[in-house]
Design a protein around this nucleic acid. Structure first.
Length: 646
RNA sequence: GCUGGCGUAGCUCAGCUGGUAGAGCAACGGUUUUGUAAACCGUAGGUCGCGGGUUCAAGUCCCGCCGCCAGCUCCA
């Protein structure tokens, strides 16, 4: 029961809800929702409301109030222990809270322990949070007198007509809109987790502040559960699994650039093969294009002006020597689109041949700043399931819908049932006309609305050449990653003067859609590895079946079974090591092989195969033919539904 | 790039306030012929990320660089 409904008529106007709560002896009330606004229980009710709900700890908004209030208490503790620290901002987040301080030596792990202890002491005082309002000038003077110049700056940034309020608990005063807890005693499961640098107002030109992150819950038990979940998430970390399952690795001489070992390469190639199957079904044509281009290409495409910071420039020995005629500037491609424009332009196109869906698994290189790379999710070399659709204006909408539908089929085929859709609009640095941008953005809105897909608008976060739809899924630790994308581009066809001959025998300009479903294969690999915890479905597992003889006597039969499986196209392995059955089973289990095929005396004499599923389920000793047929079925790739009107 | 933390054998990790490296697993050799998550014995394996410095002596202290991790900023 997260909320208690209260009849508005029972609420005394001009008085605080807290009095009502005390009078009724209600326990565990965190805050209230009055006419859909979250308010704290100490602030007097101004007029008779339409509805009043009292929030209890299991309400989602109640948790946000707790986190925010805890941030204030942390600031109070920090000010007590480190009076020189200046407070700045401290909000609640999706997972906890943080507070940014301007404090020069910074905070050590030991400091965090002291701060946490101080916060517990403050919690025990059950100090109430009180809200006060003040005029702008008074507020500025108060914080100026306190020496909190960041707060003064924040006051200056608040719109002129907004009411200014501050909250006080104990001796600590903080500019804040609220709402807050009734008192500090509600913070039970508390832990300060880590520190980090953070720029003032998120701008790297500004001063770097010291941020302290923490988590808090209404009970110790919830904190314990949360910490256990974090441990679980760590086990699923794709970097750890990648190492354990011998899938990929890194070397300092190729920072942020993965090496896929044989098993990892197998999975990687299976993903590509799967996508090739999709392409065949959906009318895409695969091409192969160069890796390194004269920088002229990127000057033409706009990448040289807009994307140069992310590009690698290649110089040959000759170009760095004296021969000036050979001193052309070359660059490794960061995207496939410019090359695809060159390819498109190599011959004339009829309207009859459009849409031209040009797919490319070309390797891309993008320079990423050292601090942003991470495992497979953010690398400097990768390949995308990239395709560019050259089509007419009239085909744009149906191509968008076909793509959105395709995404809706592919993700579930991989067991991904939830994703978020975002629409990113024109950024400050961009190419193309206003009209083109407006039309492109409208088309994307329309396509999503037509499929009744909910989406968030990311203002100014589109690519420099066009707006885009992004498909995001979450990894094991709750971080959200963009995988698929659909982008409209009027600019590149213009820049490369691409044309097609229309039915009226005039040359017209095609438009271009950039699209990917997995996004980068590397990122998808990483996210999917975490999603499955390394338990790949049969068709992706590097080793699909491991044949295990109970003792050496069964080796010949095991060998025979292995060959039958291999002939059926199954990626099978054989374990004839000098180990006991239990150890061999364990090895197969640890490598997350989907099926173990055990053969002992009985199986040999009856020509059977005992199948053990990954995880331990025993499927019994099946006649060999039956077992093979079953394993073949289990190792097959998922099939997509029939495309709608391609 | 910025802030903080970390970097010891293929992997996971010991190594207190400085006194010239250790375990388990894996690998290799042997014994064992095994019925669904670890048989036993033995062998080998380390420029302690790299480069300087302090010291009689540095894995341990200091500086620089490289890489990794958590964030900030940026993004597939």
């Amino acid at each position: 029961m997260p909320v208690i409904e209260v009849s508005p008529s029972e609420i005394p106007v001009g008085k605080a809800l807290w009095e009502y709560i005390k009078a009724k002896d209600l326990k565990q009330i965190v805050a209230a929702r009055v006419d859909d606004q979250i308010v704290d229980v100490h602030t007097p009710i101004k007029a008779t409301p339409k509805s009043v709900q009292l929030l209890q700890p299991d309400d989602k908004d109640a948790l946000m109030v707790l986190r925010h209030s805890t941030a204030h208490v942390m600031a109070e503790a920090v000010k007590k222990l480190f009076p020189k620290a200046q407070v700045t901002i401290g909000p609640a987040t999706d997972s906890g809270f943080y507070y940014d301080y301007d404090y020069e030596p910074g905070f050590s792990p030991e400091d965090l322990e002291k701060i946490e202890a101080m916060m517990r002491t403050i919690a025990q005082t059950r100090a109430p949070f009180r809200r006060f309002t003040m005029s702008r000038d008074e507020m500025k003077k108060m914080f100026a007198d306190m020496g909190e110049h960041f707060k003064v700056e924040i006051v200056d940034g608040i719109p002129a007509n907004d009411e200014l309020s501050y909250y006080k608990q104990g001796e600590f005063v903080d500019l804040c809109r609220g709402p807050h807890l009734p008192h500090t005693g509600y913070m039970k499961g508390l832990k300060l987790t880590h520190t980090a640098g953070a720029y003032w107002r998120g701008d790297e030109k500004n001063k770097m502040l010291r941020r302290i992150y923490g988590v808090v819950f209404f009970s110790e038990a919830e904190l314990k559960k949360h910490l256990e979940q974090q441990e679980e998430a760590k086990k699923r970390d794709h970097r750890k699994l990648g190492k354990e399952l011998e899938l990929f690795g890194f070397h300092p001489w190729a920072p942020a650039s993965p090496f896929f070992m044989p098993k990892g390469a197998l999975v990687y190639n299976q993903l590509i093969e799967y996508m090739r199957g999709v392409y065949e079904q959906r009318g895409y044509q695969e091409v192969i294009t160069p890796q390194i281009f004269d920088a002229e290409l990127f000057k033409r495409s706009g990448h040289y002006d807009n994307y140069r910071d992310n590009m690698y420039f290649a110089s040959t020995h000759a170009s760095t020597e004296t021969d000036e005629q050979d001193a052309r500037e070359f660059s490794s491609k960061p995207m496939n689109c410019p090359g695809h424009c060159l390819l498109y332009g190599m011959h004339k196109h009829s309207y009859r041949a459009l849409p031209y869906r040009m797919a490319d698994f070309g390797r891309l290189h993008r320079y990423e700043r050292s601090g942003v790379t991470a495992g497979l999710t953010r690398v400097r070399t990768f390949c995308q399931d990239d395709a560019h659709i050259f089509c007419t204006m009239g085909q744009m909408q149906s191509e968008m819908l076909a793509f959105i539908d395709l995404v809706g089929e592919v993700y579930p085929a991989f067991g991904i049932s939830e994703w978020e859709v975002k629409l990113a609009t024109r950024p400050e640095k961009s190419i193309g006309s206003d009209e083109a941008w407006t039309l492109a953005e409208k088309s994307l809105h329309d396509a999503l609305n037509q499929r009744a897909i909910k989406y968030e608008v990311l203002k100014g976060e589109g690519a420099f050449y066009g707006p885009k739809i992004e498909f995001h899924i979450k990894d094991a630790i709750g971080r959200s990653w963009q995988l698929g994308t659909l982008q409209v581009d009027f600019a590149l066809p213009e820049r490369f003067d691409l044309t097609y001959v229309d039915s009226d025998n005039t040359e017209k300009r095609p438009l271009m859609l950039h699209r990917a479903i997995f996004g980068s294969l590397e990122r998808f690999f990483g996210v999917y590895l975490e999603h499955t915890g390394g338990n790949f479905p049969g068709f992706l597992a590097p080793e699909q079946v491991r044949v295990i003889p109970v003792s050496g006597d069964q080796n010949p039969y095991a060998q025979e079974v292995l060959e039958i499986l291999l002939n059926q196209g199954i990626r099978a392995g054989l374990d004839i090591s000098n180990e006991k059955l239990g150890a061999k089973i364990r090895d197969a289990q640890l490598m997350k092989v989907p099926y173990a095929g055990v053969v002992g005396k009985k199986e040999v004499s009856e020509r059977r195969l005992a199948i053990r599923k990954r995880g331990g389920e025993d499927l019994g000793a099946l006649p060999l033919e039956e077992a093979v047929a079953f394993l073949v079925k289990e190792s097959a790739a998922p099939k997509l539904g029939t495309p709608k009107g391609v």
